[in-house]
Design a protein around this nucleic acid. Structure first.
Lengths: 222, 222
DNA sequence: AGTAGCCTTACATTTACCTTAAATCTGCTA
DNA sequence: TAGCAGATTTAAGGTAAATGTAAGGCTACT
């Protein structure tokens, strides 16, 4: 079952942009445009299925910060979205119990990374990502192909998860290095190639992981 | 849906020139001639659909710099246009939160490049460019014709994207070389012809990519 | 010291691309 | 309209660059 994410953002175009991207990444989204409506929604039975909420701080009806306790009551982790990049509201946001904080305008890719981290950390992560005949069991940190366990080394696993969370998006070697190895990594970009080769071999993904010449790699599905 | 760009420029002829070119490039433009009017427009519901604003610094009503916070409030990235090329206002412009800065008189082509970059950076980038029956999937770095994948080599892809981002605008061989191959490229301009030929063949664009004799090429639509 | 994981290196293979050259087209002049 | 010159199209091949892959050695943990 798909992971549900509540998107509480009053700006309709931003809301749509976020939802579109989350849906593309395999989530199910519940867009809500104002604070009071959100508060009401949290009372309903459906709200139990929400795994995470993205909350704009500036909202009509009721502002994001004061909604925090409503979310805490039903145990939904929150990532704040805000245009303010001043330290004061940042501190206030995290202190008030948010799991993370994003300053607008932000990169969708960065948002996806943070979402995955929060879901992981709070144990609400997607349990599984499917690509063709292989399943990535995120909680178990394991991978199977047609039910048969495939042993991946840590880096290979991370690489696969990164590619799989960005299906059909071309990722450059630099991007992959930055996201998996960290910003501080100094070394050859060829390193990526070697790990890609391992994944292709172990999973028989020679066609699934496509090289985008002079650019990077893309995991294809559909 | 087409990307909407707000053009805030008091000189009517310049405004028209910019709008004409942006429309030709596939954007939808909202020309506004004075500062106060712009401020009012940002309060309206329609303004939510704006992806980017081009703002002249010298304006009647209210000047561009002081409008910055209005744009930030509704989270619209700004590129300043100005006749002043002195460092002081440049610094002031960027410091005040603009995404970029163009000094008049500027090349329309350069403006288009910067617009694309800002849209990309702020996550408002177009994901797809359509030309007749072919779709360029920018994130995937792939191209399909009637849904059928077409394999393009890196240079061909770049060339297509460049032409497609400048629909109906004739680009000279020199311009294409500079923009795709880089300023440091030393070699024949005939090189461009070869790649154009490949594109025409692979995409069946014999009529769509038109030769502008003694000048260069133009990708036509409508 | 042994082991597992990972980065690098080096070589093989594949892919991309610039050039060349011949064919074709275009527009001009007679 | 024929002929010509210059411009453009297109195919092909050599070379350069990018990628694939196996193997070795380094590092950190036992």
């Amino acid at each position: 079952m798909k992971t549900k994410i509540l998107v509480l953002e009053d700006d309709n175009s931003i809301s749509q942009l976020i939802c579109m991207n989350l849906e593309a990444a395999g989530f199910l989204t519940i867009p809500i445009l104002d604070g009071l409506e959100a508060q009401a929604y949290l009372q309903t039975e459906q709200s139990k299925e929400i795994s995470l909420a993205l909350v704009d701080v500036m909202l009509p009806g009721k502002d994001g910060f004061s909604l925090m306790e409503d979310f805490q009551k039903v145990d939904i982790p929150v990532i704040y979205l805000t245009a303010k990049d001043d330290v004061i509201s940042k501190v206030q946001g995290l202190k008030s119990g948010a799991e993370d904080y994003m300053v607008k305008p932000f990169e969708i890719l960065e948002l996806l990374v943070r979402i995955e981290k929060v879901l992981e950390r709070t144990g609400r992560g997607r349990e599984m990502i499917q690509i063709h005949d292989v399943s990535i069991h995120l909680k178990e940190h394991s991978v199977t192909k047609n039910g048969v366990p495939i042993l991946l080394k840590p880096m290979e696993y991370e690489l696969l998860v990164t590619l799989a969370s960005n299906k059909n998006i071309a990722l450059s070697r630099e991007e992959l290095l930055q996201r998996i190895w960290g910003t501080d990594f100094i070394g050859e970009t060829r390193t990526v190639d070697v790990h890609i080769a391992q994944l292709r071999k172990k999973l028989d993904f020679h066609q699934v992981i496509r090289t985008v010449s002079k650019t990077g790699y893309r995991l294809e599905e559909l």
